[in-house]
Design a protein around this nucleic acid. Sequence first.
RNA 1: GGCCUUAUCGUCUAACGGUUAGGACGGAGCCCUCUCAAGGCUCAAAUACGGGUUCGAUUCCCGUUAAGGCUACCA
Length: 483
Amino acid sequence: MNIRVRFAPSPTGFLHVGGLRTALYNYLFARKNNGTFILRIEDTDRARYVEGAEQNLLDALKWAGVAYDEGPDIGGSKGPYRQSERIELYKQYAMQLLEEGNAYYAFDTAAELDEMRKQQEKMRIPSKYDRRALRLTPDEVKTKFDAGVPAVIRLKVPDSRTVAFDDIVRGRVEFSSDQLDDQVLLKSDGYPTYHLANVVDDHLMEISHVIRGEEWLSSTPKHVLLYEYFGWEKPQFAHLPLLLNPDKSKLSKRQGDVAVEDYKAKGYLPEALVNFVALLGWNPGDEREIFSREELVKEFSLDRVGKSGAVFNREKLAWMNFEHLRRQPDTEVLRMLKLELAQSAFGEKHFDDLYLLRVIGAMRDRVSFVKDFVEKSPYFFQAPDRLDPDVAKKRWKPESAEHLKILAEEFTRMENPTKEEYEAALHRTAEKLQVGNGALIHPLRLAVSGVGSGPGLFDILFTIGKEETIRRISSAIGKSEKV
RNA sequence: GGCCUUAUCGUCUAACGGUUAGGACGGAGCCCUCUCAAGGCUCAAAUACGGGUUCGAUUCCCGUUAAGGCUACCA
């Protein structure tokens, strides 16, 4: 059997991280099984149409590296891949249902339906369409239809039947048809609802596995009914556990970022986000946690998808970013750092690659994000304009100025000092002054960086160079004399 | 309310019916050390509850509870 799967988002704004996870699982499943991954745009709700949302979606998927084989922008043999371009198809199938007695026209207004639901709630009975349209005689239907009364086509759900399907993740799931609503299939504006369009397209596009979020589980029996009415073989279903807020409700905005573009903007690596969401609901069965996209493809299996919802834990995501960032080659980090620098306050200055590579070497184990290079160690890009007063209080002694002056003189005599030579010079000076190395190291760190923490001191000195080191020492001495 | 789903450390999760219930993030501590990280070691931290089935249940069954999803001419 050909494996064909799809991700079918509705373009109503941005790509949700939950959507990314669904897209990813489809992608991984297809890649793993030599299948085809399709992107289908479900834009059948003109009321929620958002300008640019589709492009946004495409960009986010591209950024994440979730590539599809068929889709609206790249085509394919089963197109078009935008439901708004397939309207006639849905109408045609709705008519077929109508003719075969598996669907019917209804002419109720929104107000009437509202009233009906209110009554049902008052009587404490399940909210469901009461089939009042089914009591209309053929003549009445014709009259209304000819008079142009807005009409919808509803699914005619059979009475007292069990509708069941086997879900790859959840096993057998059964519903009583009496619980099912006579769902609207074709809206009065001629557009299909999700249920009709989804089933028609999945069939026509020869989808073998429907991998989607758990929020669709309870509408699946309606889809199963449609497959039966059409006499189509139904796909295999796999309903993925939901992604949750810290309070366990369905992951939503207002409780933090949910858009892929938000994470991109915050400096997360696509590799990290993808790795992180992959592990929300799936695991390889061993204790590995850091995966490249290729490794995910190799390891992925729907059998190992869990059933319970997963809280989107941003702290762990940050750690993953750290792990993926440190795995990036220097040249790649360099490329990203230059981009970051260009957007920073230091953007005007020029730093050559060799210099930046030294900064990267010094900071590698200390950053989780590329922006951290700039934020955590600005002293590599600009002399400190102030010395941290708390650190100064602890590390800057009355004699420090004199000591550093002598040390600076020692440095002055050196030619292109290496890290080791800086260190040797400092040790020599400490010995001469009869003080511990720390008595020089700490004030010197403060002088050159303005702060009390960071990479090894000699790495800093070597990186910024002799002239700059000496300049910063005198500047610090000057500042200390003022107070 | 009705239907459906789910239930292992705070969080992500592992555990053919037999393990001192494992790992990871986060937290605490120690080591390393010029600081901060990284790294190494250690600690605290879980099978929701009640019944079965079984020689033996985290695991299978039933119930309770809790949480979530759905309940639109939205997807």
